[in-house]
Amino acid sequence: MQASIPSIVGQMIVFIAFVLFTMKFVWPPITAAMEARRQRIADGLAAAERGAKALQDASSKSDQALAEARTQAQDILSAANKQASQIVEQAKGTAQQEADRIVAKAQDDVGREVARAREELRKQVGELAVIGASKILKREIDAKAHADVLSDLAARV
């Protein structure tokens, strides 16, 4: 059992050739493919992370917008309510005023009419009394002389 120098040298040459072959033609393509895949996976993961973050952003933004819209709607609603009640109040006031005015006018009219009617009646009663008195007395009466008596009479009607 011994090693032989020529055999060792031959083996070494073969070994060096194999190593060089591996170095040139085996190692680089395989590691390049592995590295490229690693890069792709890393890119994919990064993209997924970005997507998740964007989704989160969008959802928080939409939540914010929703809350804003809700408060705005609330504001608008309360403003509208306020305005409506104001309008109703105003309308009520106007109507009351109008009613009061109409009532007052009507009362005014009625009072005036009553006064006019009373005046008319007074006149007519006066004339009637004069006519009646003249007819009763069947003689010419000095209207002037009895006018104060007549007007006193008329005022009592």
Binding site: M1, Q2, A3, S4, S7, I8, V9, G10, Q11, M12, V14, F15, I16
Partner: peptide
């Protein structure tokens, strides 16, 4: 199992 082979490697 041949020293020539193992020595070839180790000498390299």
């Amino acid at each position: 199992a041949d020293m020539s082979a193992t020595f070839a490697l180790s000498i390299s």
